[in-house]
Amino acid sequence: MTRGLILGALLLLYALVVVPFTTYMRQRPVALKLGYTPAGEALRLVASDQRYLLAQLAVDRVLFYFGSLFTKDGHRVSTPPEYFNMFATMQSALKLDPYNMDAYYFTEAAFTWELKRIREVNNMLDYGMKYRTWDAQLPFYAGFNAAYFSKDYRTASLYMQKAAELSGNPLYTTLASRYFYEAGQSALGITFLRAMEQSAKDAKVKKIYQVRRKALEGITVISDALNRFREARHTLPPDLKTLVREGFLSRIPEDPYGGTFYLDSKGKVVSSSKLAGKQ
């Protein structure tokens, strides 16, 4: 009987506390931190046969963290993104499980376009090729990086040939041949991005590629119009609006990163957003 009364009183108090408590929990400042992952060699000792699981968990943690960088949440304390920790965690994960494709995939997606860590990424891809000997994707990434970012077409063609041999996929063969002719940077980028976008499973990563591709397509459309203008008039237009006004371009495409495209002093198409996601 007394127990019932006590329980009733406690439940009442609980109800009084749990409402502000859960409200607080929803609105409390959250500082999303990736933090540090010990080196792969050390983890490997501790993890024994659970290292594949541990590797996957580390990769997922980074993916989650990365995703949260681009979702706006009112109550999130903004901290500078921990790119170094992200890369180090991926390295640790790959030491634990050199076969983890997610890690290569994410590294290729996150550290090339904006951070330009091409050498580090390609080293990691080379490491992966020693294990994933059947996989055409890794030489494809590495070849793309070498060609698109480093402009090292000789290395790139070697990678692409490897990818083409491994897969027999005509896409790689086309890409490989294109590198020999140093053909259209933007077209190459778009083809690569479309392939990546199609193979992406994670919605956040897919979105990253999609946005990047749209930006690149926008630039390609403008550049093409610019080239036609230059051929016809043997001069550069003063701004992009002139292209539209003179009928070379139907409209100026939108920058999916939220900026606007304009012509810089050297006559190159750039955007006020610098084609980077805001944090």
Binding site: L10, Y14, V18, F21, R28, K33, V77
Partner: peptide
């Protein structure tokens, strides 16, 4: 670890919640 601030009111709620639970 990083010295991010903690709200005292939230702490009070959290510990009352623990006691009641």
């Amino acid at each position: 670890i990083y010295g991010v601030p903690v709200l005292p009111a939230g702490l009070g709620l959290t510990f009352s919640y623990a006691v009641l639970y």
